Computed example of a mutant assay.
Amino acid sequence: MKKRFFIALLPPQTIQDSITEIKQHCADVYESKAALKSPPHITLQPPFDWEPDAVPVLEESLKTFAQTRIPVPITLQGFGAFKPRVIYVNVLKTPELITIQNDLMAYLEESLGIVHDRSKNRPFSPHVTVAFRDLKRQNFRKAWIEFENQPLEFKFLVSHLTLLLHDGRRWNVNVEFPFLTW
């Protein structure tokens, strides 16, 4: 049976903890728990299925890709929404972030045949989800009133690519691949 993976950039643990508190608030106040099933992250390659026997090939390929990259500066600023079901921490769309996402998707398609058709045909919208899927419309409206103008800002460097694995209930960090450092 194939395993389900996705590839992301994760903030430092202290920032993950702050964002997880926001996710927990959304679960407690707005009955949206789905975002708690993964660590805070910026998706670069959406979920895909992979043969368990071929995981070493996937990991070696991601290691090779990561070793050609330098750390990526990230700025999280305020909140955004994909109405009427998703609230997220806004990620500034920097040239470095766009480049690594485009390059990774092209690399995965060329080297491993991993393609996400929907992502290929729409612009990259980096974000860190705090409430989604199970957020009901009436709760979305209430939550958006709270978050729409709430200030939030974090700046950091991401020094590795992260491969996450679904265990049937939630997403977990499987392997981290360090970027090139000077």
Rank of each mutant, 00 (worst) to 15 (best):
D167S: 02
P73K: 06
E59Q: 14
E176R: 11
K3W: 12
E60I: 07
N102P: 00
F65Q: 12
I145R: 02
A143K: 01
K83I: 09
S119N: 07
A66H: 12
L108S: 02
A34L: 01
L36C: 04
P151S: 03
T14A: 11
A27Q: 11
L9C: 10
T181M: 10
T43R: 09
E109T: 03
F132A: 00
V72D: 15
E21L: 15
T68M: 11
T43D: 10
S159H: 15
A34K: 01
L180A: 13
T64I: 10
E96N: 12
K63Q: 12
M1R: 13
V57D: 05
T68Q: 15
A66G: 07
K83C: 03
P46I: 05
P11W: 11
V57S: 01
G168H: 08
I145W: 03
Q24D: 09
I98V: 14
E176T: 11
R141N: 09
P73E: 08
I15C: 05
D117V: 04
Q45R: 05
I114W: 12
H25C: 07
K136A: 14
N174G: 04
L9G: 13
E110A: 06
T20P: 02
K2Q: 08
P178E: 02
K3Y: 13
P73V: 10
K33V: 14
W171E: 09
L165H: 15
P178K: 03
H160C: 05
E31W: 11
F124A: 11
F147S: 08
D134W: 00
H116K: 02
K93V: 10
Q45D: 07
E51C: 02
I42E: 12
I74L: 12
T64V: 12
A81H: 00
V29I: 13
P40S: 07
F132K: 00
Q45A: 08
R137H: 05
W171F: 02
T94A: 07
F6S: 06
F179Q: 01
L36I: 02
V72S: 10
V89R: 06
S18G: 13
A66M: 06
L165K: 14
P46F: 06
L180R: 15
P52M: 05
G113V: 00
P56Y: 03
S32A: 15
I19G: 02
L135T: 14
R170L: 11
G78L: 08
L112W: 08
T181W: 04
A34F: 00
V158Q: 05
Q13S: 03
Y107G: 04
P95E: 10
V175F: 03
F65W: 13
P73A: 13
I74T: 06
P123V: 14
D17Y: 08
I70A: 01
N149E: 11
L164A: 04
W50T: 01
D17N: 15
V175C: 07
E96L: 15
S159A: 14
F177N: 12
A27W: 04
S61A: 10
F177K: 08
D134P: 01
E59C: 11
D103E: 11
N149L: 05
P84R: 02
F124Q: 03
E110G: 01
L152S: 04
P178R: 01
L97K: 14
L76I: 02
S18E: 15
